[in-house]
């Protein structure tokens, strides 16, 4: 019996966002946009979904006069990400996803 994959993470852009945030303290919206290659609108929607699930924390502020959105992964997000990766590895060791 394979473990169920978290549907929230099983999306290309959301998974990319979580992968970036898993390796850093926090990241600006612009950095996330550059790293994922997503459009601002789409990225914004996916960030909201991850924030609503409690996987990431979003802080809106200003850098000088420019608005700045900073995201960081939460402990719940780290746990969900680790569980997702472990599930993927199990799929791979046991057959096709």
């Amino acid at each position: 019996m394979f473990p169920k994959l978290d549907p929230l993470l099983h999306s290309e852009l959301r998974l990319a966002v979580m992968s970036v945030l898993a390796g850093v303290e926090s990241a600006d919206f612009t950095f996330l946009k550059a790293q994922t290659g997503a459009t601002a609108g789409n990225l914004s929607v996916q960030i909201d979904k991850l924030a609503t699930a409690g996987y990431i924390a979003v802080e809106k502020g200003y850098k000088g006069k420019m608005p700045c959105t900073t995201c960081r992964i939460t402990p719940a997000g780290v746990e969900a990400f680790d569980t997702y990766v472990a599930a993927l590895k199990e799929y791979l060791s046991g057959g096709q996803a």
Binding site: L15, S19, A22, V24, A34, T36, L88, Q96
Partner: peptide, 22 residues
């Protein structure tokens, strides 16, 4: 996405991010 594609995406994104930082 297949499990393999997901793992490849995670690995590539993390690697690119690490490179950008360094």
């Amino acid at each position: 996405m297949t499990a393999q594609e997901s793992l490849a995406l995670i690995s590539e994104t993390m690697n690119n991010c690490r490179r950008a930082i360094l």
